[in-house]
Simulated scan of single mutants.
Amino acid sequence: MPEFETLTFTQTGPVTSIVLNRPEAANGMNDTLTRELVVAAALCDTEATKVVTITGAGRFFCAGGDLKAMAAAPDAGTFVKGIADDLHRALSTFARMDAVLITAVNGTAAGAGFSLAVTGDLAIAAESAKFTMAYTKAGLSPDGSSSYYLPRLIGIRRTQQLMLTNRTLTAAEALDWGLLSEVVPDADLTARADELAQQMAATSRTSNGAVKRLLLDSFGNGIEEQMELEARYIAGCARSADGQEGIAAFLGKRAPAFG
């Protein structure tokens, strides 16, 4: 297991926990954090992992890109491109892996932190969490897949409002808009994330991976293409060990024991 400087990585059975761990910098993304996130994501993309949780240490989930590091770089453009490229490699892995990604937003999620928060297959937040794009306030443009996910989650008009006016949403507003799966009291966030992780750990990794791939492809396909994928994926699931176990358990009127 590699030694991480800016995050903690804990594997407990089929559940992996990642904690962004730069609390002194509001968990801001510098080149070290995004580079380590690529490594962490690759470690999650294995058959041994069924669930991944991501949260932040301290008061912030993630305040976005580390502007101090950007200002200190000899070439800000090259530096930021490297950070964005690494972040995008990590997010692509999280999106394409079979494991379910749970984002547990413990505090303010700004900029790339906002982008990361909404990539969760299941996104939960503490009541006190706040969400803001904040990019244009610093003369920057969005990254971290937000221009992909936000229009799909909340539509173009609301996305424009968030990105152009930097409106701040409360957790309750983010839930109402469709950015989150659920909101819980601050004191309950860790326990709820753990409970949800254990619930997902008992499900089929094969099925979950198929769900993720189908949903990622759905906006780019016509109905016939999408139905062909559905037919192929459900057939693959039926052939798999998880599919065989699920069918047998249903017919035997017992709980399935997925691998």
Rank of each mutant, 00 (worst) to 15 (best):
F4Q: 01
E5Y: 09
L7K: 10
T10K: 12
T10L: 12
P14D: 05
I18C: 06
A25Q: 04
M29W: 04
D31F: 02
T34R: 03
L37Y: 05
L37F: 07
A48C: 03
V52P: 08
F61A: 02
L67D: 01
A73F: 00
P74V: 10
G77K: 07
I83W: 00
F94K: 03
D98V: 00
A99W: 03
I102Q: 02
T103S: 06
F114N: 01
F114C: 01
F114I: 02
S115E: 12
S128K: 14
K130E: 14
T132S: 14
S145Y: 11
S145L: 14
S147M: 13
I156N: 13
R158V: 12
R158K: 15
Q161H: 15
T168F: 13
L169K: 10
E173Y: 14
L175S: 09
D176G: 08
L189I: 11
D194T: 11
M200L: 12
A202E: 10
R205C: 00
T206S: 09
S207Y: 14
A210Q: 09
L216H: 09
S218R: 10
S218K: 11
F219L: 06
F219R: 10
G220D: 09
N221F: 15
I223L: 15
L229N: 09
I234A: 14
G246W: 08
G246T: 06
K253Y: 01
P256T: 10
